[in-house]
Design a protein around this nucleic acid. Structure first.
Lengths: 342, 342
DNA sequence: ACCTTTTCCTCAATCGTTGTCAGGGAGGGA
DNA sequence: TCCCTCCCTGACAACGATTGAGGAAAAGGT
């Protein structure tokens, strides 16, 4: 019977008042008497009234939707981020709209456009690995829509962002290796397009220097750092005259690949070669030996990104917010793959 | 300068035509001349016109938003599902809106409500573990909004859903154990509220029966099947007079816990005890020995859920769709934790 | 009794698009 | 020449909510 949904007009008619009053009553407007508010909410319940977010959004210019752009949803890191974002956003009464870029800059631009068309109140995003042209993000800024980037960032941009201190993370990891007695430390890194990998490399070099360990170019191997890449990189290392006695990989998968190859060659980990990964993916704790890794506090990163968005939203309208940068200190999670002395 | 966004009216004014015509031109309406279409798109680009999805949604009653409800985003299973859903939905021009329930039925009901208020065109959801009251889902059905459940399902409902054949998955796993020579096979399961665990238990029992292996109640252990639960369960098993020689766990984490305890007790895996998990989480391939597990084809499940949604959307309006059930055959991924004979 | 304040509510416009209905102009057939 | 189509476009009213301005009634002060 009640096929059609009830609107504020229906409530208004029922009570012989206007829709305006109903609207204000429902929004707890101070200049509406408690009596009417009560009556309105009562009838609203009776008629099973449900607010029409779209209509409200259209009129008010506020959709209460937060757009999130991630490379892929099925990686622990991004899943955790999404969780962290949603946790906070939801409490502030925002719905989260998700887009995946699959690391494709074109899809990234399309996602931005789609979210803008949906009139999201803000966007939280992580750059795709291959993004070089950032004009789609500038559009967002130009429109005055709060934008927060996380993890992957580019210094050309002046946008709020939350990242971890990749430099420190790498530094800590390498220092730990040194303290465990490693002197020939290799490093797996990605092509140097994206700042996080540059920073980690920088941290790696700095640690070596601080401990007077010579930097050996042959020990730095570039790849995509997936499992297979890690294996190949390790195999390459094994052909050197001076085989490394420690590896700091910028990805956990890369580290795992190396670990597998070492085991297959009966190389003792950590005694002969100590290994450290990056990201603290869930699988790191289950390998044998468990893999030491650098934790990025993913969920927290998501929380903070949401917080920044909310802040900027609040400020919005007054004047343009100055970009805010939050740097989280990563945490070295020490496990057996790097622990020589117990 | 162009602070305000261009609307179809702006385009119309520019060309001395009406907004209706512009709208039709942009939507490639057949009764608009190619000339006007061209002119419109040209001016549209010039004015940087961007469609206002909300306005269109309000008017047309179609938001092109698909709601997704999952327990949590930071678990591989659900991340993959989300990815699978978005992949398809995005191609069909839908945006995906995400809600997490954290396994809380109240949050689940709230999520349904929120999505309905956002006038999503459909909802894809997985039940929270503790949901017993399904009225919020019935509301969705009553409103005629396509609803698709995945993985976790309840037979009280008559709703389209896509699940894997948990019975077969379990059956295959246990048969594999038997073929590897196991005769005393234990099973880790969850409390029996949710059908997937009941089905797996059923498959377990059936396999035993088919191979004339007696069912030993002591070998079935109920828990939440997290890592620690798995450990405790294994410890419990080790106190029995007849220690099992095979374990089929309904979760990978549970299996991992058992595996850890076995290794700590110098029990050879798989020779003394063979172990199989369920879900084929990423970490299963990295443990030592790698863990045999049952793959659920998560991403594919997401794809199919999206497909069903799209189908129902197409049918919608004609008559009510009959609920569709898709059952995926799970795949036993055999790794060393269960492989005795090479 | 009169004027001022408060308190509470109504009016009407508006957000950007789309669907319906009607109409103008060109072209063809008789 | 007239009428009938066929194409294309215009006009207008929704969709459901919010918002600012304005006004009636009640309350308060002198």
């Amino acid at each position: 019977m009640n096929r059609k949904k009830a609107t504020i007009h229906d409530i208004a008619k029922e009570l012989n008042i206007t829709a305006s009053t109903v609207s204000r009553a429902l929004n707890d407007h101070p200049r509406i008497s408690d009596d009417t508010k009560l009556a309105v909410t009562r009838i609203a319940k009776e008629l099973r009234y449900r607010p029409h977010n779209l209509a409200a959004a259209l009129r008010s210019g506020k959709s209460n939707i937060l757009g999130v752009i991630i490379p892929v949803a099925d990686r622990n890191f991004f899943g955790s981020i999404v969780r962290g974002i949603e946790e906070i956003a939801n409490h502030a009464n925002y719905q989260v709209m998700i887009c995946q870029t699959y690391e494709d800059p074109k899809k990234e631009a399309a996602a931005v456009q789609a979210l803008m068309n949906s009139r999201v109140d803000g966007i939280i995003a992580s750059l795709s690995k291959n993004t070089l042209d950032f004009s789609h993000f500038n559009k967002v800024i130009d429109e005055g829509i709060p934008l927060v980037l996380f993890d992957r960032y580019n210094d050309q941009l002046e946008i709020s962002h939350v990242v971890i201190d990749d430099y420190q993370g790498a530094y800590k990891a390498v220092v730990h290796l040194i303290q465990q007695g490693c002197r020939r430390i290799a490093h797996f890194t990605n092509v140097q397009k994206i700042s996080i990998y540059r920073e980690r490399l920088r941290g790696y070099k700095a640690a070596l220097q601080d401990y007077n360990i010579p930097f050996v170019p042959d020990y730095v191997i570039e790849s995509d750092m997936q499992l297979l890449d890690g294996r190949r990189s390790m195999e390459k290392l094994l052909t050197l005259q001076e085989i490394p006695d420690g590896i700091f990989s910028s990805s956990d998968l890369g580290a795992m690949g190396a670990l597998q190859v070492c085991k297959e060659n009966n190389i003792n980990i950590p005694q002969q070669i100590a290994i450290i990964g990056f990201s603290n993916e869930p699988f790191t704790m289950f390998s044998d030996p468990p893999l030491t890794s650098v934790d990025q506090h993913c969920k927290r990163m998501g929380n903070i990104a949401s917080d920044i968005f909310l802040e900027e939203t609040k400020l919005s309208g007054t004047e343009k917010f100055i970009p805010k940068k939050v740097v989280l200190m990563p945490e070295l999670v020490i496990r057996k793959s790097s622990l020589r002395k117990s």
